[in-house]
Design a protein around this nucleic acid. Structure first.
Length: 213
DNA sequence: TAGAGGATTGAT
DNA sequence: TCAATCCTCTAC
């Protein structure tokens, strides 16, 4: 049992909280923002279809370390979004197959972002299972590539504001207990050398939707 | 312009 | 353990 359970018991038919404002995303510590996003609710709404899930796993990335696409302020067509104002989304294609959803943080020209790695499904579970062709509800949002598919997030949305009406993040007002947050190093960035050891991955202890190691 | 590699996933 | 799949970046 963890604090996040309280969130998942909220009604599936009503808004669960207030939308996060730009000021939330524009704070300076990307690792703090990654931690604070745990327990918040990611919502997608288009084509009269609403899907959402509680954020249960995140990773922080900064231009200051080698795990980040924009390391050393590398500006390319792809990374340009990362240099935008905090509060927009950075969506890119990984392994030619999977879309990755990131929340851009900090101020303009400070390339930092939080990768959303896993969600606990809240609203629109049936639609998410249909989108992912999954038969087990525990597999629809338990990974960064899977959750974008479940919520219908694609690269066409790269650079869009998280304060708009298609994708946003809500605060359900639930306090996550400090001892329920597990902090580890990030996954799949061995190329980053010792920066891969930074304790910038955060997830909710014992949550069944955490991505596989 | 060619070639290497990747913040993953699912099947075997 | 490995293949899928294609975009991005780097080297030349």
């Amino acid at each position: 049992m963890f604090e996040g359970d309280k969130v998942s018991r909220l009604s599936c038919n009503k808004p669960v909280g207030v939308r996060l404002k730009e000021s939330f995303y524009q704070r300076l510590r990307v690792d703090s923002i990654a931690k604070d996003l745990l327990g918040k609710v990611l919502v997608s709404s288009f084509n009269n279809s609403l899907t959402s899930g509680i954020i249960v796993e995140t990773e922080a990335y900064s231009y200051k370390e080698r795990g980040c696409h924009a390391y050393n302020n590398l500006r390319t067509t792809r990374t340009e979004t990362l240099f935008g104002e905090g509060g927009i989304m950075y969506v890119y294609l990984c392994y030619g197959i999977h879309n990755m959803f990131n929340v851009v943080t900090n101020r303009k020209n400070k390339a930092e972002a939080v990768l959303i790695r896993a969600l606990e499904p809240l609203r629109g579970k049936e639609l998410m299972m249909k989108r992912t062709s999954a038969r087990d509800v525990h597999r629809i949002t338990s990974g960064p590539g899977k959750l974008t598919k479940a919520l219908g997030i694609g690269r066409a949305m790269d650079g869009e504001k998280l304060t708009g009406n298609e994708i946003w993040i809500e605060d359900p007002g639930t306090k996550i207990a400090r001892n329920k947050i597990v902090v580890t190093n990030r996954i799949g960035i061995d190329y980053a050398g010792e920066d891969a050891l930074l304790p910038w991955r955060f997830y909710l202890k014992d949550n069944p939707w955490i991505s596989r190691p």
